[in-house]
Amino acid sequence: METSNPRANCSAPASAVDVYVNGELRSLPAGLTLSSALEHLGLDPRKVAVERNLEIAPRSGYDQISIETGDRLEIVHFVGGG
């Protein structure tokens, strides 16, 4: 179930942000960069690629990209295929 504005459910200041990661709604600590969000999720930034709100997140920018409430992240990696 998607809510149009997940932040509307919490009172400010937010200590967590609600984001969609690979289609699942997840709560992440507020103030994370993409780098720290990947670390939080237990992922090695060198082995994944990330799309944020339908745009490629360049690997060189992971430290600069801050995760905002309502963000839609797709985190992918290479798997076996033909």
């Binding site: 690979n22 999720l41 985190i75 990696h77 290479f78 798997v79």
Partner: peptide, 19 residues
């Protein structure tokens, strides 16, 4: 080799990886 691109497994990030 050909490879596919798929979502990472968030429930178990320690699963074996191709690379």
């Amino acid at each position: 080799i050909t490879v596919a691109l798929r979502r990472v497994n968030l429930s178990d990030p320690s699963q074996p990886r191709l690379v």
